[in-house]
Amino acid sequence: MKGLGARHIALALLAFLLVWAAVVATKVPPSEAVRSFIDGSMGGPAAWRQTFREMTPLVVTGLAVFLALRAGLFNIGADGQLTMGAAAACHFALAFPGPTGLWLGSLAAMAAGAAWALPAGLIKAYRGGHEVISTIMLNNVAGFLTVWLAAGPMRDMKQQSPTTRLLDKGSFLPNLVEGGPFRLSLALLIGILGVAILAFWLKRTVAGYELSATGANPSAAETAGVNVRAVTIKAMMASGAIAGLAGAFLVQAFEHRFYANFSPGYGFDGLGVALLSGGSPWGLVPSAFLFAVLSSGTSSIQLTGVPKGLNGILLGLLIMVFASVRYRRSRTVGD
């Protein structure tokens, strides 16, 4: 990315003013809103715990979407794949208490996520049907299916709401740091490790090269001997598997059970995280962190009377400003 021009600074200022206006419109003193925002996201161990908790599924779903994007696929279905993964992970953890349930659940979550992405991959590869449409539809199927699971076969009848019983402690994903109000789950470390692995795989392996070629120019890739269909299907499945793993992490590290309407939209936020990450997988980490700060900050700001919807305004503006900087028309060099 080249240096920022006056126009970009003006754009950022304009975005800032819009947010300011939104806060002012709620009649909450802006200074109080800002203080509450910072306190809720980074002000003390409990706030940090909340921010890192939010960041974990975002890194992993961001990773899932990023991989698909590299292959030229817009995986809007990460949310459904995540939900299916969470349900599968929960089922196996309940059926096999202890570490076995943790391992089997993780594998089952990846398989479930991959299976949920597979139809979209097949439709894209063999019929040219757009993955945005098919994955959105699969999201809805996953949503209703898991509501039924949580309210029916998997339900703990002792509970008021449609939810499963709690997992056995032995099936929890352990925390790296556990002391007082601050906690840091192993899941976040695994997510960041995943980022490192993807970065290496894309840059340094022939398979990563062929996947990137498919995404950048499928016709040129095919001419260069890449099996574009196979890459498309595999990339979609891998993306689904990673999103499924995000669902497993939510169950194993944070919620310890599965319930109806499980995901508050982590799959969709993962899309924003991936788009904001720029060209490199490493961008996913700060990008997910930023999303997490905004999420925990705006949760806390609600207490002062600002609606949670501010989160959406902030993210939307952020992505637009970023896109205008990154995707502006590049000047080409002449003959």
């Binding site: 340094r204 022939v206 090269y209 062929e210 070629a213 120019n217 040129a220 260069a224």
Partner: peptide, 30 residues
């Protein structure tokens, strides 16, 4: 459409079509 990927570097484009050949790949690695 078929010969190059415009946004990629010359180095990356040099391997297009030859990505699995000797001198461009060592096993699964580039």
């Amino acid at each position: 459409a078929e010969g190059v990927i415009d946004d990629w570097s010359l180095t990356e484009n040099a391997a297009l079509g030859l990505q699995r050949r000797h001198g461009f790949a060592r096993g699964p690695l580039i």
